[in-house]
């Protein structure tokens, strides 16, 4: 008797729980995003709800401020550099792992993946104390964008490597052999046969590297000075003093840049699919 009622009640309870959880998770993930989006169009100088007047005033303010546009420029330059460095290094390394016998393979694999599991604060500290005081031929490492690019590559490169290792496994190697048989050297085969085959993987990993660098701020905080500070670093420093809707604008602009990258990946992917189906 009690078992029967138990069984009839359980599905109903379950359905209510599922619905409640669905609402909770959607709300949880969307709340900070929507709050930011709404606040960026606030006209007032204070962060407070309800919002009385709406305007794009803080967007105009953002783009009129040299400090904030410089920070955005630094962020984009550093992210571009990180994307180039980590994609080049990661793709070549993954190719070596795919095609060659490497002594102590597992050891090298662990070594290359290790930085990905290190907290940003540790990597930032290490690079800052090891290269902070160093300058070669009048070029000071500390505060330079290049040092931040390499530091960000410590996270981005293992990720590219992992992605490309998986991508290289999907290639039909008879095509590579055919290229060799037709007299294509290893270098020419790599650039003219292999790379076009994995172009989607390369574009995706490049954009992921870009996004990681664009969003990262702990390493950048340790390695930049006033002239090279990135947008997230400037946001962190201003949040400590006072929050204004300008910060919301900065958040939206960061997110829009990431969104633009995703759109590029999607468009590229669709294009490749069309090519294949043709």
């Amino acid at each position: 008797m009690s078992d029967a009622t138990h069984r009839s009640i359980e599905p109903v309870v379950l359905r209510v729980l599922v619905a409640a959880f669905t609402i909770f998770i959607i709300g949880y993930i969307l709340v900070p995003i929507l709050v930011t989006l709404v606040m960026s169009f606030n006209n007032a100088a204070m962060i407070r709800f309800p919002i009385a007047n709406w305007s794009a005033r803080w967007y105009a303010d953002f783009f009129a401020s040299g400090q904030w546009t410089d920070a955005l420029k630094n962020s984009i330059l550093i992210a571009l550099g990180t994307a180039v460095i980590s994609t080049t290094a990661g793709v070549l390394c993954a190719w070596a792992f795919q095609r060659f016998h490497i002594p102590f393979r597992d050891m090298w694999y662990i070594l290359i993946m290790m930085p990905l599991f290190m907290p940003g604060v540790v990597l930032g500290l290490g690079v800052a104390i090891a290269f902070g005081g160093l300058s070669i031929g009048g070029y000071a490492f500390y505060g330079s964008r290049e040092l931040v690019m390499v530091a960000h590559s410590l996270w981005a490169m293992p990720l590219v490597f992992m992605l490309m290792e998986a991508t290289f496994k999907t290639i039909d190697y008879r095509i590579v052999e055919a290229s060799h048989d037709l007299g294509g050297g290893p270098v020419r085969t790599f650039f003219e046969v292999v790379l076009p085959l994995v172009s989607t993987g390369i574009v995706s990993s490049m954009l992921f590297a870009f996004v990681i660098s664009l969003n990262e701020f702990v390493m950048a905080l340790f390695l930049t000075d006033r002239d090279t500070q990135t947008l997230p670093v400037l946001m962190w420093l201003s949040l400590r003093s006072a929050g204004t809707p300008r910060l919301a604008v900065a958040s939206v602009i960061l997110a829009l840049t990431v969104f633009a990258c995703l759109t590029i990946i999607m468009l590229w992917y669709v294009r490749q699919l069309r090519k294949v189906s043709r």
Binding site: V35, R48, E216, M235, W236
Partner: peptide, 19 residues
């Protein structure tokens, strides 16, 4: 895909007295 700093700031506007 959102920067940690943007997430922090999002919640920073959600929780306070005037949030």
């Amino acid at each position: 895909l959102i920067s940690e700093i943007a997430i922090i700031f999002g919640w920073w506007m959600f929780f306070p007295k005037n949030g």
